[in-house]
């Protein structure tokens, strides 16, 4: 009897200090997504009626989804965002892998200074640079084009990739490379054939991060793009679905939902990489 009382006590304690707080956290984190979904499938009549409970959907409709995909340029924005994210991730990985390898493995004059500068640029926020960058982009004739973002995004992606990959390259034993060189491989061959294949998990983490960061970027896209057909998802949804003071909440929430889905899918495939990459970035 005393045992069962003891068990009951710990269960109650576990409920109070563990299950209830954890449930509340998870609920708070996920509620806005539930709200996106539920808003996007309600009829306007129900959406703007304060008398009925907003938690129930009486008359589900896909009208807002249809509007989003057929009456707006949403699919074009998805395509633009995808294209920009893939190219800027590619550029950043190219520059980041080479730079990260050099700073992690090679000793040359100025490598420490360069590492420190990379760290400082890593902390430079887009909000600091967007005004003069507008001048640079118009000088190159890139304003209102997707190419402007493909060059702008690497400004924050390259320092990030280099920083993450320096840490990763340092975990690969230097002896492997030395063995290859004793067997007659050149330094470049040792790098390309021995080190880079071993660094694939790190490169993948950096790539996933870079992709999601470019998918989510807002300020540069807002400033550089003006034609509706060139916009990315974040700028298109906020800019084109709000006309003056009129908010079309149904299509807006559908846009928020479907704009989030691609990154959520990428993330769900690579969640373990993502988490380990994040902790790697923190420790590095």
């Amino acid at each position: 009897m005393s045992t069962s009382a003891f068990v009951g006590e710990t269960y109650r304690k576990r409920l109070i200090v563990f299950y209830i707080p954890l449930f509340l956290f998870v609920f708070a984190m996920l509620f806005p997504f539930f709200w996106m979904l539920i808003t996007s499938i309600k009829t306007d009549a129900e959406l703007y009626n304060r008398r009925v409970s907003p938690f129930l959907v009486r008359d589900p409709t896909f009208e807002h989804w249809r509007m989003l995909f057929q009456d707006t340029l949403f699919l074009q924005w998805v395509w633009n965002t995808l294209w920009v994210a893939v190219v800027s991730t590619g550029i950043s990985l190219f520059a980041g892998v080479l730079g990260g390898y050099a700073l992690a493995r090679l000793t040359f004059r100025g490598s420490t200074v360069f590492s420190i500068w990379i760290f400082i640029t890593y902390l430079v926020p887009p909000a600091l640079l967007f005004i003069p960058l507008t001048g640079v982009m118009s000088f190159f004739g890139l304003m209102d084009s997707r190419a402007s973002l493909m060059f702008a995004y690497p400004t924050f992606l390259v320092p990030f990739c280099i920083w993450l990959l320096i840490g990763y390259f340092q975990t690969i034993p230097k002896e492997l490379e030395e063995c290859a060189r004793i067997d007659g491989a050149t330094r470049v061959q040792a790098m390309v054939k021995i080190v880079l294949p071993l660094a694939v998990p790190g490169i993948l983490s950096a790539g996933i991060f870079a992709f999601t960061l470019s998918w989510n970027e807002f300020l540069y896209a807002l400033v550089f793009l003006s034609s509706p057909e060139n916009k990315t998802v974040p700028v298109g949804v906020t800019g084109e679905l709000i006309l003056g003071d009129v908010f079309f909440w149904g299509p807006l929430m559908a846009g928020a939902l479907f704009g989030s889905v691609p990154v959520a899918i990428v993330y769900s495939f690579f969640v373990e990489h993502y988490v380990s990459g994040m902790t790697g970035a923190v420790k590095g």
Binding site: M29, N216, V237, W249
Partner: peptide, 25 residues
């Protein structure tokens, strides 16, 4: 699941906050 708010585009998740904090609804 808990990591989800950090993954999705900030602007899009902020739109749902705008709606949840709407003056009337």
């Amino acid at each position: 699941a808990v990591l989800l708010p950090f993954i999705v585009p900030t602007v899009l998740s902020t739109l749902v906050w705008l709606w949840m904090l709407d003056g009337t609804f």
